[in-house]
Write a protein that binds this DNA or RNA. Structure first.
Length: 278
DNA sequence: ACCCAGTTTCGTCATGGACT
DNA sequence: AGTCCATGACGAAACTGGGT
């Protein structure tokens, strides 16, 4: 149906030596054209040694260089592929192609998982279509406000421009981490007090009475970018984690079925043996 | 309908490893 | 040493299901 992979023209049923998965119907990948550029992205150095993620359009059975891969097709088109042996590096013959979609995983059974990066050639899945369920959209709208919004509500969402004037910096009192600026030319009776957080990057725009308005706009922008990147990274990390867990769960169910099959086989063989000895 | 405890999701921070 | 990235940890907000 969806993706099929064939290496060197040979089509192998990966489940031939394993148990047939009952809940999911693996596909035999029959043709690989290589548009996907796959390369080793990184070695995870945690308990699972390294990890490889290959994103496929759907899942199937894949054989690469005599390595049999078991895969499970997920209803949501996210795929999980597990190899029976550890392959490093994973490579495709020239001219082969794996059609890919995001959110799939290839995992080797030996714990040698590696991340594969795929260059998308298709038109779909530009990310905007990713899980655009009503729930998802609602979540995005109703979730805890971002730091930007919080900042905005605190009155600091926009660049704070302080009229030129004398500014007094009182440090070490009041809320830890905050500085108090007392402005002598304030129009209010008690004088204006501005506080800003003293973070590594957190600063705001304070036009100097002399010279250009220095500030940290740059640092703030960098911080914005850093947070944005980290936000994206966290999302991706969680997605991978979910995928990995799903992969493990699939593996568990596969092994359970395999175990059951072997138990049944053993039982029937025992019975056969018993009949012959009687 | 309301409350509440447990769960899920998300953004941010801290940190370690890889890379330059 | 500095930068970047991935990820665990944490807290906050939203969601969920059960009890009243």
């Amino acid at each position: 149906m969806d993706s099929m992979v064939e290496e060197n023209g040979s089509v192998v049923d990966p489940l031939a030596q394993g148990s047939q998965s009952g809940e999911t119907a693996p596909n035999i990948v029959t043709s690989v054209q290589s548009q996907a550029r796959i390369h080793n992205q990184q070695q995870q150095q945690q308990q699972h040694s390294s990890q490889q993620y290959l994103q496929l359009a759907s899942t199937s059975i894949v054989q690469l260089d005599a390595v049999q891969v078991q895969s499970v097709i997920q209803p949501n088109q996210q795929s999980v592929i597990q190899t029976a042996t550890n392959i490093q590096p994973l490579s495709l013959s020239k001219g082969n192609v794996i059609l890919v979609k995001p959110n799939s995983v290839i995992q080797t059974a030996q714990g040698g998982l590696q991340t594969l990066q795929v260059v998308e050639t298709g038109s779909d899945d530009d990310g905007s279509s990713e899980e655009e369920s009503p729930k998802r959209r609602r979540d995005m709208l109703s979730r805890r406000p971002s730091y930007r919004k919080i900042l905005s509500e605190l009155g600091g969402g926009e660049i704070t421009v302080i009229p030129a004037g004398s500014i007094q910096l009182a440090q070490g009192e009041g809320v830890p981490g905050l500085h108090t600026l007392n402005m002598s030319n304030s129009t209010t009776a008690g004088g204006t007090i501005v506080q800003y957080a003293q973070g590594p990057d957190a600063q705001f725009f304070v036009p100097a009475s002399t010279g250009p308005g220095v500030v940290v706009e740059d640092a703030a922008r960098k911080r914005e970018q850093r947070l944005m990147k980290n936000r994206e990274a966290a999302r991706e990390c969680r997605r991978k984690k979910k995928e990995y867990i799903k992969c493990l769960e699939n593996r568990v169910s596969t092994l359970e079925m395999r175990n059951q099959t072997l138990m049944d086989e053993l039982k029937s063989l025992k019975e056969l043996y018993q009949q012959k000895t009687d």
